[in-house]
Structure formats: structure tokens, C-alpha cells
């Protein structure tokens, strides 16, 4: 199913995690919003890493993809929580 979680963070940045989930497994993931990521490709790498993952290994996928990426407007932990919430909503 299509699942999305939207969060607004304290400095006003808005982040949306949108996923296609089938049988608890991520088929597609998009992270959108007015945050900054340096380098920007880091976000696309996270999105790719998430495909094929489930609740048991989604955290690991984000953590391994995020190395060397600086996020402004959203913390890594918050991003992981949003990904996990999408997966939990699908159960």
C-alpha cells in the first residue's frame, strides 16, 4: 500500500516520507520537503537502499546510506523514525 508520514520540525522545515509497501517490504521510497542535504545525492542513495527492506532492517539501510551526508532541517534519527512509522502503519 501507499503510505506517507509528514513531519514539521522546530525550525519550520517540512519533511515527507512516501512509500509503496507490499507485504511489509518497501517497493519504492521518496523523501521530499524543504530540507537541505549535502551532498544532495545522499537522499537518492537512501531512497534506493530502502527498496527491498522491511521493519527489521530499514534502520540499517538508512544508517549505511547516510555516511558523509550532512542534513539540515531534519535529523537522521527523525528520518529513521518516519521510515519505521510508514512500515508500522502498513501492518
Amino acid at each position: 500500500m501507499d503510505r506517507e508520514v509528514v513531519r514539521k520540525f522546530k525550525d519550520g522545515k517540512l519533511v515527507k516520507v512516501k512509500m509503496v509497501i507490499e507485504g511489509g517490504v518497501i517497493k519504492d521510497a521518496k523523501i521530499t520537503g524543504d530540507f537541505f542535504a549535502h551532498p544532495e545525492e545522499g537522499i537518492e542513495i537512501i531512497e534506493k537502499e530502502l527498496i527491498g527492506k522491511d521493519l527489521s532492517n530499514a534502520r540499517q539501510a538508512v544508517e549505511s546510506a547516510i555516511g558523509g551526508v550532512t542534513l539540515i532541517g531534519v535529523r537522521i534519527e527523525e528520518l529513521i523514525a518516519m521510515v519505521q512509522e510508514c512500515l508500522e502503519n502498513d501492518r
Partner: peptide, 9 residues
Amino acid sequence: IGYFQEIRE
């Protein structure tokens, strides 16, 4: 719009 933004939103 920003690099990561959803245009329709």
C-alpha cells in the same frame, strides 16, 4: 522550488 520538494504540494 527546492531540489527535494514535491512540485504539486
